[in-house]
Amino acid sequence: MTAATRPSDRYLELVCPAGTPAALRAAVDAGADTVYCGFRDCTNARNYPGLNFDVDELREGVAYAHARDRRVLVAINTFPRAGDAGPWHRAVDQAAAAGADAVILADIGVLDYATRRQPGLRRHLSVQASAANGPSLAFYREHFDVKRVVLPRVLSVADVAQIVAESRLEIEVFAFGSVGPMSEGRCFLSSYFTGLSPTSEGACAPASHVEYLERDGRMFSTLGKVTLNSFARGEPAAYPTPCKGRYVTHGRASYLFEEPVALNAISILPELKAAGVTALKIEGRQRSRAYVAQIVGRFRDVLDALARGDAMPQGLGDLKGEAEGGRETFGAYHKGWR
């Protein structure tokens, strides 16, 4: 396995998650071109106990990646609370001091701070900003000199191609992880169950409010004491998020918003390349280094094969074993509901 190191050499840049320094090393070793991570506080959208980086760990992670010609991005992608922008400003300064290659930002105020105070630090627009059309992206480009945007997961490949054509920005899209068919950065479902905001506290369905119970041979998942789902023995389980709850309507329990299924775009990478995409994002900072190594390694092998001009390798695209609910989908890339 070889990892391409210069953007011009790359088929598509592989941007991979790291919730811990060990996961960062695993991602780099497995062939990530770029790793993204966040600080151990409310400034990033994966604020779970025991996860994320302190400043020293980030500095060491950046050194590890740079020594191997890879890049590190820092996600500061939640929204400051009223009168309390300090942690977000501090995070931008600390990312710059640690030598990060870019910050991934969502809030206009944080973007403005980074533009003025750390002009040399590259800025990417987080998916949490939910920017998905030409005029919106032009605004971020013109006012904050944003270089790259991470697109929401509600767009078809044709939509993505259209945005590439009109945005004049690097486009990053999700390639593996949650389907996420919500208005990114504006989903407050979890806060109705927990009283905590996913967009400013940094955790959807925080672990402090989740509980699992075994009853009558079924496993029940609850969030804030509300039962979200139940699973028969052996039935694949889902994350305990409100969007993946089974709700009873007209006497029938069903998935109203989203079924437990993972987005996997590995077999349509040539389509995304043809659409003009620059980078692929693997989701999963909350997952272990074993997951990171497995998924990144698989994408690396496929990308290297495609870069050599080989046909799509057979048998490498199936990642159901690591997928939520044990199933995969192309999500909105191949929209069937329009």
């Binding site: 106990p49 925080p206 672990a207 402090s208 989740v210 509980e211 699992y212 119970l213 075994e214 496993m219 699973f231 023995r233 052996g234 039935e235 694949p236 389980a237 889902a238 994350y239 437990p260 909350q286 997952r287 272990s288 074993a290 997951y291 497995q294 074993g321 690591e322 997928a323 939520e324 609910g325 044990g326």
Partner: peptide, 20 residues
């Protein structure tokens, strides 16, 4: 060597009490 969430999805691991 193995991912905890994957084990959970596959029901190869069960947890109870404080998820945090």
């Amino acid at each position: 060597r193995i991912d905890g969430d994957t084990l959970f999805f596959r029901r190869d691991l069960s947890i109870a009490g404080s998820t945090a």
